[in-house]
């Protein structure tokens, strides 16, 4: 039985599969956010699956993907208000902005599985996997650092790569690559 069926068999009965996709042999399964801990325990403990190794945890910002493509940019001054209204209307209908992706690995059969959770911008809290795999310690902190996704139950959720009072979440798509001048207070005000 291939991996997809086995995962479906394991998670399906409890309605834990939101969607499944396959890309070049990489199976990914999207699960509801609230039950991520249950899903992980199931995936780890079910005999046919045995995903006992957490390879990585990271976030993805789908802001650009969610945007309707090739929207013409209106340069008219009067149109601004209308645009904003349009944007807010769009936002409501959009899928949740962030994703957290967990890469799982079964050491016995060398199978890999991506588990996905969608995180909306207004509810940025996911259960931490620290109680299951300690490997999720820093990756979760990094996801918090880079995207602002909070992990409930993480023992030490603070910034990992940026300094503590860094004001933004740099890997978000609306953050410019060259920064917003955060260097200033660090270097010049000394």
């Amino acid at each position: 039985m291939d991996l997809k069926n086995r995962v479906e068999q394991c998670l399906g009965p409890e309605n834990l599969v939101v969607a499944m996709a396959e890309c070049q042999g990489d199976l990914s399964v999207e699960v509801p956010k609230r039950s991520i801990l249950d899903v992980m325990r199931l995936l780890r403990d079910t005999p046919g699956l045995g995903f006992n190794f957490l390879s990585d945890v990271f976030g993805v910002d789908n802001l650009d993907l969610n945007k309707p493509k090739k929207r013409p940019k209106k340069k008219t001054e009067e149109g601004e208000g209308a645009e904003e209204a349009e944007e807010t209307a769009e936002k409501e209908s959009l899928p949740p902005r962030f994703e957290v992706i967990y890469l799982l690995l079964c050491l016995e059969r060398n199978e890999r599985l991506q588990v996905k959770v969608r995180v909306a911008e207004d509810d940025m809290e996911v259960d931490s996997l620290y109680s299951i795999w300690k490997a999720s310690d820093w990756p979760e902190r990094e996801a918090f650092d880079m995207y602002g996704i909070r992990f409930k139950g993480h023992p030490n959720l603070k910034r990992l790569l940026m300094w503590d009072d860094f004001p933004a979440y740099p890997l978000r798509k609306d953050y410019p690559l060259e920064g917003q001048g955060e260097e200033r207070h660090l270097i010049y005000d000394d």
């Binding site: 070049q24 990489d26 990271f58 890469l103 991506q114």
Partner: peptide, 22 residues
């Protein structure tokens, strides 16, 4: 469009790249 994860055994261990394309 799609997303893949591919890893190899670097001198330090599993070095993986997750690439998502739109």
């Amino acid at each position: 469009a799609g997303e893949v994860y591919s890893a190899l055994e670097s001198p330090n261990g599993e070095l993986g790249f997750f690439v998502k394309s739109d």
